[in-house]
Amino acid sequence: MDRRSPPFTTLLLAVATPVAAIWLIPDQTDDVSRRLAAQGVKLDYGIEPVSFGPVANTVIGVAACAVVVACLALLAYGAARRTIARAWLGVAGSTLAIGFFLGFSWRVWTAGGIGANIGAGLVMLMSPVCIGLSSLPGLYGAVLLRRAHKQRQLSVLQQETAP
């Protein structure tokens, strides 16, 4: 794995993780609302759910899961072979946690119901805490990567100026 590929791999992970989480987490509409919808009652949604059809949803979900697994495997392989800094695993872990939280939040917001969606309000209240806590390993990894980059630059400058 090249040193320039972890940012691209992490970006792919950031895009694919929420999509995979949305596919893996089932619809959060409760049974009572489902029965009322079957009787013709119009459900209320925080955000109207998006569907491309059962086949397309499955293809997109499986592809997103495959991208997540491939990205994690590439980063783990690069860290094990020491071709990339292990700090990228912390960045990937944070990206995975935040992406999963975003996918879960989407499922809560798109749950059908009658009246107010209490879960959506709770997700809004918990978002800063969850995203803040799950971003700590990524921030620490970014600090470690920045320090390693500065040390490499300093050693290159010292080698160039040495007689």
Rank of each mutant, 00 (worst) to 15 (best):
Q28D: 09
A80C: 12
Q158E: 15
A85I: 03
V108P: 06
R146I: 09
A73R: 12
R152D: 12
S94W: 04
P49L: 03
R152M: 08
A20Y: 05
F52E: 00
M124F: 15
A66D: 05
L139K: 01
A111R: 03
G78A: 03
C65I: 08
G90E: 00
L144W: 13
M126C: 13
I131V: 11
T17E: 06
L12V: 03
W88S: 01
F52R: 02
V15K: 02
Q28T: 11
S94F: 05
L157Q: 14
A73Y: 12
L102D: 01
T83C: 07
V129C: 00
A142D: 06
L96C: 06
S51P: 02
R3L: 12
T110Q: 01
G61Y: 00
S94A: 05
C65H: 01
L122S: 12
V68E: 01
I98Q: 07
G93W: 08
Q153A: 14
I131N: 01
G138A: 02
L72R: 03
A162M: 15
F8H: 12
A21I: 02
A16Y: 09
T95D: 03
V50Q: 06
C71W: 05
A66E: 00
P54F: 05
V62M: 06
Q39N: 12
P137Q: 02
S134W: 02
A16F: 09
A73P: 03
R86G: 15
Q28M: 15
R152E: 10
I114A: 02
R82I: 00
K42F: 11
L43T: 04
I22E: 09
A80D: 11
A87Q: 10
L144M: 14
